[in-house]
Design a protein around this nucleic acid. Sequence first.
RNA 1: GCCGGGAUGGCGGAAUUGGUAGACGCGCUCGACUCAAAAUCGAGUGGCCAUCGGCCGUGUGGGUUCGAGUCCCACUCCCGGCACCA
Length: 819
Amino acid sequence: MEDQYRPQTIEAEAQAYWQEHETFRAREEDPRPKYYCLSMFPYPSGRLHMGHVRNYTIGDVVSRYKRMQGYNVLQPMGWDAFGLPAENAAMEREVPPARWTRENIAAMTEQLKGLGFGYDWSRELATCDPDYYRWEQWLFTRLYRKGLVYRDTAAVNWDPVDQTVLANEQVIDGRGWRSGAPVERREIPQWFLRITDYADELLDALDRLEGWPEQVRNMQRNWIGRSEGVELSFELAGRDEQLTVFTTRPDTLYGVTYMGLAPEHPISLELAERNPAIAELVAEARAGGTAEADLATREKRGADTGLEAVHPLTGERIPVWVANFVLMEYGSGAVMAVPAHDQRDWEFATAYGLPIRPVIQPADGSSAPIDEGAFAEYGVLIDSGPFTGMPSAEAFTAIAERLESEGRGQRRTQYRLRDWGVSRQRYWGAPIPMIHCEQCGPVPVPDDQLPVRLPEDVAIRPGGGSPLKTMPAFYETTCPDCGGAAQRETDTFDTFMESSWYFARFACADQEHAMLDGRADQWTPVDQYIGGIEHAVLHLLYARFYHKVLRDEGLVSSDEPFTRLLTQGMVLKDGAKMSKSKGNTVDPQALVDRFGADTVRLFTMFAAPPDQSLEWSDSGVEGAYRFLRRLHALVRDHVARGPAPGLDADALSETQRDLRRKVHETIAKASDDIGKRFTFNTAIAAVMELCNALGKAQEDDSDGGRAVMQEGLETAVLILAPIAPHLCHHLYFQLGHETPVVDAAWPQADEQALIRDQVELVVQVNGKLRGHVTLPADAGEDQAREAALAEANVQRFVADKTIRKVVFVPGKLINVVAQ
RNA sequence: GCCGGGAUGGCGGAAUUGGUAGACGCGCUCGACUCAAAAUCGAGUGGCCAUCGGCCGUGUGGGUUCGAGUCCCACUCCCGGCACCA
């Protein structure tokens, strides 16, 4: 065995071994229970960053651990290869996005292999390959025919100088990132997927996703934002028109004192032509864009329209105002304002001197103070005609029923979630498989003409927009229905389309004749999914939606794609997120080159639990390296003494038994930490403790001592095998095994070895630590009490007091309560 | 504003069910080895007082309990998400 720990040699050998033996190839015919472990696939930006290393190390540790537990593990890897950075790079370096992307994939593949991740590379996929996106196009045309796809207008950020659409992240302080011109909002036609059809299922199923962090489930609940209420109509006096509003508080209906219209409401727009005050509000709403920080701090402003609405129950005339706090995008763009019981309505009413009429009082009969703000809680109705005296909940139903019976309203469920706009006015994405025909309208591309290939040999020019729009060879086509001249859609898909089903495609990446086959149902759902919290809502919601769509198409049979989810924390340096702009990045490759992949993996797993943020520390990395070197030396020195004799547990000395107990305690703790709690840091700490203890026992050259040493070192190697797989691969062979550690079984704690015949009890007086006593493990309370009171230090504290009670916790402590 | 999560030595963190606070690692101090340094190995390392040992200590203030980092109430600050959502 080499005298020195040389990670470069050891790691190259281990990786060559895995490759040669196809160690990580997952096979469908394997009879063991399947375990699908997936880390979120990366965008091929060119180089791995620390966030990737952390994410993929966690996934690899889980995969290797599950493999040792006897599962047939699938751990694939691929590339989320479409997206904006490739277009930006194309402009900067004059290289086509396709080439840039494929070069990055090649480079990053090498990095991943160098880190020793156990991926089944035979299933590798890149979403920019036509063999991949053709099936997404295929599904889209099916969903179109099914009615789950529709076309509507939606606002985009338009750069008037570059004549192009900008992504939100390309808009900086309301200006185009390249041109610096103020960005305009433009309404253009786009394709939508009816995710709202699945809103209820997406929401309700969250309750059953017990393997997901509560935080993520909550974020999705808020995002979907279901609210139950009543939709009702107010007649407009003197106009042949009604104002429809949604309210979650029909019980406050008698407190309506004005109506609020969004500035972009059709009525507001119409009145703006004659009314300068309204026109100003409209202009402000348009200019403000979507900058939420402005909105939140914006002062409540409005203008009287002069119109009057008629209260549906009392017939009272109510003024209609245009109000800048009413959103056109939510509900109907109009609200009934109840200033006594809604804070926003209250602020607006106060600003413009509108009446505030309380109709709810607290259930205890006190009167709610509405001078300082609205009373927004439930209570009992007052001054509400026939509903006076009812509790809010009862009034909700009664008023809703009254409105329904009069045909003036109905109960309704409203969602914050909107349909998913999947059109992007970009080049580097999957072409949307639709054809626009003047005669037939939009027509889906027939299956036998799929895929619609994205031309890859293109030049991207600044300010030129998507090259597809200027490529007749791409967009000129004939209508599949009437055969006349027609134009292809030149927009491409949102890249979330590709990442919404890749997990299923990994199961059957080589399938040429279908989107998915039976293997997809065999491997999915993903048992453990690992990725960044930044995908808590969009990616994870879209993927859940897509999975249900795939299910309804008969392609998979499960309801949810990801059984368990682990969201890893950020990697920080000097307390801040690593980023190029802050200049605090650490290049993983430089560390791998210097210390080896095992050290980088070990430190990453040791420095913090996976869901917390990880503070980078160069000296911590060196500490991890030192530990691996010590482990290497321990095995080297042990092996140098020749093969260890067999273990005779009954013949061990007390010291040897103590050490062996430590070995098995470590197994028990590490199994719990890695298998159940996912706290890899504490499992590593336990192994470090074990190694410290083994190091102190090195002089024991007896048969028993050497046998326990062998068992201890094997244990350390087995537990660390998922975390530092290369070194453990090497050491396991050195310890005399003929099969690789990657195929070894996870160690089991020996209950017999865990038994203690002596226990140390903590002795407290009035809850304060005053000493320790060592007793036989089966000692009872009387014996413990006697021993505790015999302690000199305990005597000092109870001498002049009366013992009132003794608390005994077997195996733990004895507390003498004295006064 | 609302919804999550958090605050523990000089630093990262541990304490799983209310039972020895600070495991493990980093850093630091001292010692061994060395001409010297690095590396390595050994010892120590929450603060204060001290002879055994004691007092204080887990963001702040209160409470429950024989016993609280852990449970309850009120609050401060930090991080993440959402937000005039009717």
